[in-house]
Design a binder for these strands. Structure first.
Lengths: 125, 125
DNA sequence: GCATATCGTAACTATTAAAGTTACATGAAA
DNA sequence: TTTCATGTAACTTTAATAGTTACGATATGC
């Protein structure tokens, strides 16, 4: 699909789409090609792409804790961070495991026949 | 402490402080009093106030998932939400357990002698 | 080669949520 | 009755994000 098509699909702008998925290209999840007939495709099979891969590529902060202190001199902040530091790691590890269990192919199955057909068409090409 | 003092402590505005902690008052964690000599105090002993209590009172979204779909017709969104619905619950439960283990008294100990002294003074009063 | 189509990206504007501010009413204490 | 504090509404400022415009680079088809 082109950025234009994706943008129409998501009710947003082609440039916003390109910006948003730039990280996925850099991570080798999507590949893009310019010029006539260009656009976006999966860079590897949907079975090999997990939500964990995508989250890593987009550098989303999965758990809303910042362990790095705003004010290193603040005793309260330091106490809270110390108390929660291990918790953050524990949560991130659990979440990453769960995200790693879901592939794009799984989601495509969930989406039903329509998307499956689209994937088959792409693979054939 | 007064909102003014807390604001100075946090480098912010007294009104912002009042707005921020309004939920803690409504939840019975802090109590405020007006007029001369007024200000904010703990509404109950620091040993009985956990970070989970505070998180609940402030209605912070602890896990950054919204299970409610932006567009209920979107097959992709529905598939992702279905795949992640249980994970959100799992993470929230784990986090809440961990937060429930940390009391303000624990943090005060961490903060060292200075804050401990302050608490003792308040309790005596 | 040239027209067309597409991404990449810089630069700008628009939108929105949060923080900050001002003002004033309410209430409590000296 | 004066002073000091919260409670809250209304407004302004700030910062992050989204959206837009413009244009260069590049690939395809004629």
């Amino acid at each position: 699909m082109t950025s234009e098509e994706i943008g129409a699909w998501l009710n947003t702008n082609p440039v916003v789409v390109r910006r948003s998925v730039a990280g996925l290209r850099e991570a080798g999840i999507l590949s893009s090609s310019r010029g006539h007939g260009g656009g976006w495709t999966l860079a590897r099979p949907a079975e090999t792409i997990t939500l964990a891969d995508i989250a890593s590529a987009l550098e989303e902060r999965l758990i809303p804790f910042n362990t790095e202190p705003d004010n290193p001199n603040c005793l309260v902040e330091r106490a809270v961070n110390k108390a929660l530091d291990g918790v953050k790691d524990e949560l991130e590890q659990l979440l990453r495991q769960r995200l790693a269990d879901v592939t794009l192919a799984d989601l495509a199955v969930q989406c039903g026949a329509g998307v499956s057909a689209h994937l088959e068409k792409q693979r054939g090409h």
